[in-house]
Amino acid sequence: MISRRKALRAGAGFAALATVGAPSILHAQTKTLKITTWGGKWGEVMKATVLPAFEKEFKCTVSADQAFPFLPKLQVSPKNEPIYDVLHANSNEQWNAVVEGLVMDKITAKEVPNIADVYPYAVSDKIVGVTIFTSAIGLGYRTDKGLTKPTSWKDLADPKLAGARGGYLIPVNSLGQAHLMMLGKVYGKGLTDLDAAYKALEALKPIKLVDFTGQMEKMLLSAEVSMGVIHDSGVYRYEGANMQPVDFASPSEGVLALEQVLNVTPGSKVKELAFAYIDYMLRPDVQKQLAEAVWYSPANKKVKLDAKYDAKLLTTPEKVATLIQPDWKWYNARREDIDARVTKILKG
């Protein structure tokens, strides 16, 4: 016969075992979505609200990698068990990834219903995956240097700006690469007119070059450059912060698109969840929250931003029409030659 004490002891032991075992059982049932995402303010909002809400709604955990660059890590991970389920990257990197079979070449409204509400640029033939936001690449300038607001990309070549204009190390920065193509359009026959672009690049010397946009922001803020190539969010995010004398100008020839693109890896074991994540990121409320946090233009047409953001970001079909999307497939195929040529042009 089992005594009361024995029964209690057995019960306590069972309860303890259940307590210890429970998390692992729960863990086994909870799916994990592995994504890449940016750091900074974007990363703060993602980790504080956007991702926890997604985890709660879809009963999963999200493992977010913020340590850029992501593509080399995806390159060395097995294709049938990729390190990421969703790759968040700029468009040029997505094109590199699709050539190597690391991401899907097309995502449609069938997998991600909110695609039905995005502007055409978000899923155009210049995009692999889905654009969730875009920035406009134009000219940032100091308002305290007696400069008139630039209206053309050609204004960067003004002799007054010798040594006080800023650009990017083209081999390492997609804004620099996009700007090079724009020089072909402005001074030659089009975005692919590299000869005209090289000639125009030569004429921009002396120019201060940096390798990432954060550095360009610092150069503008410290007046190390008076005008430089930059994306609108890199200037607008300082609005109201100590009344910085910097502003953004959209040249009349058009602004270049700096798309934030999400794509799914073909070998992902949680594809449904990955598509659900992209769909979630395209929801108007999520788009509004992130767009206003970092001054990105939302890809979803239905998003209604507060007036302050709506006035400056690309939120209407007319404003979106000023976006120029470079052909990254074309560019990446010629990249080695371009890198060598621009390095020689800009050195010395």
């Binding site: 660059p69 080399p72 390159q75 060395v76 190597e100 081999p171 390492v172 920065n173 080695e336 890198d339």
Partner: peptide, 11 residues
């Protein structure tokens, strides 16, 4: 080398 790994993706 950093360029080749990080942006040209040619390890």
């Amino acid at each position: 080398i950093a360029q080749q790994v990080g942006t040209s993706f040619n390890p």
